[in-house]
Design a protein around this nucleic acid. Structure first.
Length: 669
DNA sequence: ACCGACCCTG
DNA sequence: CAGGGTCGGT
């Protein structure tokens, strides 16, 4: 039989995850500690889902078992083949394991990479040496039990030749014994799991399938390793049933059974089910035959795989909740689970491809030191969708930037159910691009590099039709300054990319800041330096930046007053009083309003505050009266008007205090 | 539409 | 010196 230990000496990329833990020649764990900060960049669980590791092993297993006669899985077959056939054979499982944007599309993963990942996991496993020892002892005990079971079965075979009834009773006893053994191991695993979860942070009881998570930062890799190590034993692996491989456990969601299901019921269900047992092809009664022992071992192994899948699942969940950029990966263990999905349960599961795809992409996206928006966006908007099993997080007062995934993706090369949330992809790419620009030499002292660059390269970015994907749903339109602050806003096509990237910290001013300043102009025409500092928290202020911002507002005023004077003179030329009055009224349907809106709110995604319309009309009338009365002959005739307008500043909404480009959802959708 | 240069004021 | 305004260039 193809016991896990048979694969001991295979190259890492072909090893089962649990083999890794079992076969650790490295005895110097202290050399291999990973800093938690680097966690997100380590594809910890990706190797576990790699076909060369788990799935391929199970593919071979299936082949030898004849579980899928039509599914020829060879150890040397390519990843694509494995996947393709698997997908074909397990059509009911909506699974896309590889990442079109990353590993798929013919770009086979490099075994070296995966091997390294395995090695990392290995080392992690070694980090808990004492724990390992304990588990080894545990394993030894279980192996002993296992062989005992085999012996018993042999004996039973001999008894079969005797009295029929006796043999039947013996079988019953055997079954009972096996059940007891399984229950025992399950109990032990349960205990172990609880320990682990306590160590992890007292979540043993309140953590229901990883649904209630807190943002504790990055997971300690040791803890992750422990979680893996908890389930690396085939026998202990039977402690919890696979979420997707065996029959659904009705009590699985009761209490802590969500993680550690009650054992007796499970076994009863499975043994009485007269169907697939423990998620493999071992049908009731079959395991009592001559090869029953082997099949029993296989069943146990399969259980182990299921356990691994669960562990991965939980690790991924933890990833998802601690690293928002990985949320789309949440609940991932599709590789093993899909492979073993012979008896799919009813547990709702997220689209596998969605998660598998996004992680490599997202974890590679630069995590800016401040970037609160960048981090919050995917979590808020993608988490509930990508992982419906997770409790939705409270909606922060940040704009919803990423809409639900739509089917009409604009990257045609992707499948319809493209797992990569494209807006997110967009953001990532833009962010990468923007960041890469930051390495360019400075052109200006005050403006950010990206600003300088993008001013002449806006065309390099997607047109608005594409960026329209970023628009939130029209459901929560905000009225009258109802901006929901902070986030990287959706603006016109040319600038949107820049604004998106501007949630990150800036040495200088970015187009997003310009946009924000313009929107601020709706509220304050004469902001003080302190005000500017307040509302541009993501800008490192120095004299130059401050002057630049002041200059911006000066320019805004310049434009504003020029338009006022122009339209005032135009009104002054009106002969009829009614027409003049009409011209002096600044309705939202007037040309002056359109011009102002176009200038300060170019993308028209922000509702111009009524107050600004009123103030503009005041200015217009002031200009008009000055012109009418001939005061414009005075070279300083505008000063008086400036004085009036200067007093009409209103407070800027708090949403502007957040970094990034504010926007409301007006006109969205 | 934007910005630099320049001037003025406090 | 900071900030505001104006003018002219692009």
């Amino acid at each position: 039989m193809d016991s896990p230990s048979d694969r001991f000496h295979q190259q890492p990329s072909q090893m089962c995850p649990f083999e890794l833990y079992r076969s650790l020649p490295d005895s110097n764990p202290s050399n291999h500690r990973f800093s938690p900060g680097s966690l997100s960049s380590h594809p910890l669980f990706s190797p576990l889902m790699h076909p060369n590791s788990m799935s391929q092993r199970w593919g071979s297993f299936r082949q030898r078992q004849g579980l899928f006669p039509g599914l020829l899985v060879d150890d040397d077959v390519s990843e694509e083949d494995v996947f393709g056939k698997r997908e074909f054979s397990v059509g009911a499982t909506p699974s896309l394991q590889r990442c079109p944007g990353e590993r798929g599309q013919g770009s086979a993963p490099e075994p070296g990479d995966w091997g390294q990942d395995f090695a990392r996991v290995k080392r992690l496993r070694m980090d808990s040496a004492a724990r390992s020892e304990e588990e080894m002892r545990r394993r030894e005990g279980k192996r002993g039990r296992k062989s005992t079971a085999s012996v018993r079965m042999d004996k039973r075979r001999g008894a079969e030749q005797g009295n029929r009834r006796e043999s039947r009773e013996g079988r019953k006893r055997q079954r009972q014994e096996l059940k007891l053994q399984l229950e025992e191991t399950r109990g032990k695993l349960l205990e172990l799991q609880r320990k682990v979860w306590k160590v992890y942070g007292g979540q043993a009881d309140d953590e229901k399938g990883g649904e209630e998570e807190q943002e504790n930062g990055l997971i300690n890799l040791d803890e992750v390793a422990e979680m893996f190590s908890d389930s690396d034993d085939p026998l202990t692996g039977s402690g919890f049933s696979p979420p997707r491989c065996s029959s659904k456990k009705p009590n699985e969601t009761n209490g802590n059974a969500g993680i550690f299901p009650e054992t007796s019921v499970d076994l009863d269900l499975e043994l009485n089910g007269d169907q697939v047992w423990l998620g493999c092809s071992l049908v009731r009664g079959e395991w009592e035959s001559a090869e029953g022992g082997q099949k029993f071992a296989q069943a146990l192994k399969q259980e182990l795989a299921n356990v691994v899948a669960q562990v991965i699942d939980r690790v991924v969940r933890l990833y998802a909740e601690t690293d928002p950029s990985a949320v789309t990966m949440a609940s991932v263990p599709q590789e093993t689970s899909m492979t073993l999905d012979l008896n799919p349960d009813q547990r709702p599961r997220p689209h596998p491809a969605e998660q598998v795809e996004a992680l490599p992409l997202l974890t590679k996206s630069p995590q800016d030191k401040r970037a609160p928006i960048a981090q919050s966006v995917p979590k808020d908007l993608l988490l509930p969708q990508a992982n419906p099993s997770l409790t939705p997080l409270p909606q922060p007062p940040l704009p919803a930037l990423l809409p639900p995934r739509r089917k009409d993706h604009f990257l045609p090369s992707y499948p319809p159910d493209n797992p990569v949330p494209l807006p997110l992809l967009h953001y990532t790419m833009q962010n990468l691009f923007a960041r890469s620009l930051s390495t360019l030499p400075l052109h200006k002292d005050c403006l950010s590099e990206s600003f300088m660059d993008f001013r002449s390269h806006n065309s390099a970015f997607p047109p608005i039709s594409l960026l329209g994907q970023l628009e939130p749903s029209p459901s929560d339109r905000a009225r009258e300054g109802g901006m929901r602050g902070g986030g990287a806003g959706v603006v016109d096509g040319g600038d949107a990319a820049l604004y998106l990237a501007a949630g990150s910290s800036q040495e200088g001013l970015s187009p997003c800041h310009l946009k924000k300043a313009k929107l601020m102009f709706f509220y304050t025409r004469y902001p003080s330096s302190s005000t500017l500092k307040t509302y541009f928290p993501d800008v490192k202020f120095n004299r130059c930046v401050n002057s630049q911002l002041i200059k911006w507002f000066s320019n805004f005023r310049e434009f504003f007053y020029i338009q006022m004077e122009r339209f005032a003179r135009q009104a002054a030329r009106e002969g009829l009083a009614s027409a003049r009055e009409r011209a002096l009224h600044l309705g939202r349907d007037t040309e002056l309003y359109r011009i102002l809106n176009m200038h300060y709110n170019k993308s028209n995604d922000y509702q111009v505050p009524e107050r600004f319309v009123e103030i503009s009309e005041v200015a217009l009338r002031e200009f008009f009266s000055a012109i009418q009365s001939g005061r414009d002959a005075d070279p300083c005739w505008k000063k008086a008007i400036y004085k009036i307008i200067c007093k009409l500043d209103s407070p800027v909404p708090d949403s502007f205090r957040l970094p990034g480009c504010p926007t409301d959802t007006y006109r969205m959708g």
